[in-house]
């Protein structure tokens, strides 16, 4: 299973993750990212990948089942 985590020290509260994956992310009282749940369904995994790609400061980490970290741009080839 994939593991999703977010780095609140790096987060700038742009909210791109909340926009593309509201089931997975929320913005807390302080405006910083909060992970709401793990992407335990394929459709959520796709949303998590989008969030990784759109995060302007690479504050979201998605560890794949093979333990390899997905990096921004990887799944879209950008």
């Amino acid at each position: 299973m994939a593991e999703l985590s977010a780095d609140t020290d790096g987060c700038i509260g742009a909210g791109r993750c909340v926009d593309v994956a509201p089931e997975l992310f929320d913005s807390g009282e302080d405006g910083l990212v909060v992970v709401r749940r793990q992407p335990d369904e394929p459709r959520l995994y796709a949303a998590a990948e989008k969030a990784v790609d759109l995060c302007p400061v690479m504050a979201i980490e998605l560890l794949r089942a093979d333990r390899r970290v997905l990096t921004p741009g990887e799944q879209t080839g950008r």
Binding site: D19, S27, G31
Partner: peptide, 8 residues
């Protein structure tokens, strides 16, 4: 950040 969060 909190002043411009999606929530706010």
């Amino acid at each position: 950040i909190s002043e411009f969060s999606i929530r706010r």
